[in-house]
Design a protein around this nucleic acid. Sequence first.
DNA 1: GTTAATTATTTGTATGTACAAACATATTAA
DNA 2: TTAATATGTTTGTACATACAAATAATTAAC
Lengths: 143, 143
Amino acid sequence: MPESENPYCQCLYYSANALSRLITKMAEEEFATTGLTPSYAFIMMSLNKHEGLSPGELANIMMLTPSTITRLVEKLEVKGLAKRTFKGRNTIIQSTTKGKELNDIILKAWNNLFKRYSEVLGENEASRLTSALYASAEKLNKS
Amino acid sequence: MPESENPYCQCLYYSANALSRLITKMAEEEFATTGLTPSYAFIMMSLNKHEGLSPGELANIMMLTPSTITRLVEKLEVKGLAKRTFKGRNTIIQSTTKGKELNDIILKAWNNLFKRYSEVLGENEASRLTSALYASAEKLNKS
DNA sequence: GTTAATTATTTGTATGTACAAACATATTAA
DNA sequence: TTAATATGTTTGTACATACAAATAATTAAC
């Protein structure tokens, strides 16, 4: 639909969600090689980078809520990619051997995703858009 | 988290989704006065503007799938805000009197949403970001 | 040292969204 | 005119995510 015909195109809520759905679909396609959907893949990347993270830390990194992290990690445990150890009121989440073995494939998929949307949007435009999005998310997060 | 510390801030998937969740939350707060969540409010605005839309048309306007539209409209029917009439394989969705009465409140909420995020991001920056998002969504949609 | 307040995590429940399959109708081709 | 194909919509099912409440554990206050 051409911009002039869409009454919602000047609404940040509408446009941000439209883009989010499209890029999520593309990410799902690219991460399919890993057997994971993007959220899970991002958590695995974090766990493979840092040896032991709490749900709270992971929630911060991912900009998700702790309860969502719990839900996602439960499923990674079932797949044998992550494990939790409970210590008092704290939980430590770690990648398993199987999880670490996945890392290269995940990074490759992530890179393919980057290349794919950069081809559609142009590398500079994609980069500019991403920075602007992240900066705005930071501002909204703090407001 | 400062940009330099976040390894995902240069990923469009990550940033777009982070922003999407934040702006959706803000929109939910602003549209709360209407008794509707943002998606429903947008559908009502469309129905109040065009006298009779098919699920397919509505899906196009909203950049959602027809099945999602069916689901949303079913609930608007339960609330007495919309009604469907079936004609052959086609469906026509219309706003009810009760739905039309909501229009002013919805438009006011939408305007408040605009003002609120413009205050946080700056009106120019918000406007630029929205245009860039919409343009990119269009490109991805066609690719 | 016991009580109160705070913090970290998980659970119950709800919601928006999509995909694939199922229907139902319309259109085209033989 | 029947058979084959295409189109529009709805249903079954699944998933990521969040909120509010429940747990559990730590820290602070008296």
